[in-house]
């Protein structure tokens, strides 16, 4: 009976989010909130519905940033209170009051942190299909839209919950650093009314600051910042590596100590046996506790972060090369 129930329930639970559909107003709200220079790290909640493999985000609201700074312990309850109050208020005006995830700003695309994984974990308690929308205000001000939708890979979540993010655990589960986050394609959908409005709002085709920024040939500052972050990541990796090495050293030393202790104990026992006395136990758990293996989650996250930096650099360079070719073409046309 229970098995049958589990079987019936399994396909539903296994249905994963494949795409994220954003309503235009959500995108604009996120952009407005995250681009506000007053907010260093802006975040907010996403509301919507999940329809099969697609997550429809129809509305969102900002979370106050000051809450997080005030009192560290009470944050959770304050945030929760704020969320419930807002949800209740929004329900009165018929907004989808179903929490489906959250959005946050990430300058230079730095978001792969343990905190994010932990936030995901706490969200997943309540929302099975939870996504995070990451918006990069810096890159967006360069004239392109830098929005990503990510979720955690389900196999990784299981491992994280069992706290088995060790070398062995991850290797057994056959997970690489690529398998932590899953990037989801984003679609934009507008109601017919909004589409009419947007069409009416068509910005006049004049060149704006964004165009100038986009056509700017120099991408050195961007590259510089990216490479700097990349270097910091490498430092982190080295530090993590160091942790692992010292762990291995500690284990080796412990094994050595244990071996010598065991030899001595056996010797003692031999003597005791000759004297016909009771033998001492050959194991002493109090003295040789297994050293906890360090989590290599950080390792993985930093690696994933580095990969995304490299992607950014690649994109930026190909963009720069495009522009340079464009320039060349224009110069030739003039001669």
């Amino acid at each position: 009976m229970a098995a049958a129930l589990a079987e019936g329930g399994a396909p539903k639970a296994k249905e994963l989010v494949k795409t994220v559909q954003l309503e235009g107003q959500v995108l604009l709200k996120i952009m407005q909130h995250c681009s506000d220079p007053q907010h260093q790290l802006a975040s907010g909640a996403l509301l919507g519905l999940d329809v099969g493999q697609q997550l429809e985000v129809t509305d969102c609201f900002a979370m106050p940033a000051s809450l997080a700074e005030d009192q560290a312990e009470a944050v959770d309850t304050v945030v929760e209170d704020y969320q419930t109050a807002m949800l209740r208020a929004l329900r009165e005006v018929n907004v989808d009051n179903n929490l489906v995830g959250w959005y946050q700003s990430a300058s230079m695309g730095i978001f792969q942190t343990v905190e994010l994984v932990e936030t995901f974990n706490s969200y997943l308690d309540n929302i099975k299909k939870c996504v995070a929308i990451i918006y990069d205000p810096q890159r967006s001000s360069r004239g392109s839209l830098a929005v990503r939708a990510v979720r955690l890979k389900e196999s990784f979540i299981e491992l994280f919950r069992e706290q088995k993010c060790t070398v062995k655990g991850l290797r057994d589960a056959n997970l690489s650093w690529r398998d932590i986050f899953v990037d989801l394609p984003i679609k934009i959908r507008n109601s017919n009314l909004v589409q009419a409005v947007v069409a009416d709002l068509v910005p006049p085709p004049t060149a704006t600051q964004a165009d100038v920024d986009r056509l700017n040939l120099s991408f050195a500052p961007f590259l510089e910042r990216n490479i700097q972050s990349l270097m910091e990541c490498v430092d982190d990796i080295v530090a993590e590596q160091h942790k692992v090495t010292s762990y291995h050293k500690a284990v080796a030393r412990q094994q050595q100590l244990y071996a010598s202790w065991l030899a001595k104990r056996r010797q003692d026992n031999q003597l005791l046996a000759q004297e016909g006395k009771e033998l001492l136990p050959e194991e002493d758990p109090s003295q040789f506790k297994p050293i906890p293996e360090p989590s290599i989650l950080d390792h993985y996250l930093v690696t994933a972060q580095m990969a995304s930096f490299c992607d950014q650099i690649n994109a930026a360079s190909s963009e720069a090369i495009q522009k340079l070719f464009l320039m060349e073409g224009m110069q030739k046309a003039q001669i």
Partner: peptide, 29 residues
């Protein structure tokens, strides 16, 4: 329309001028 909003608005506009429903879906993707 601020510069950043313009980027978003332009994105929503792509495909609007093309009447075929496929193109709309394509641009969204």
């Amino acid at each position: 329309v601020s510069d950043i909003e313009r980027v978003g608005a332009e994105l929503m506009l792509t495909g609007l001028n093309d009447p075929s429903p496929e193109s709309k879906r394509e641009t969204a993707n």
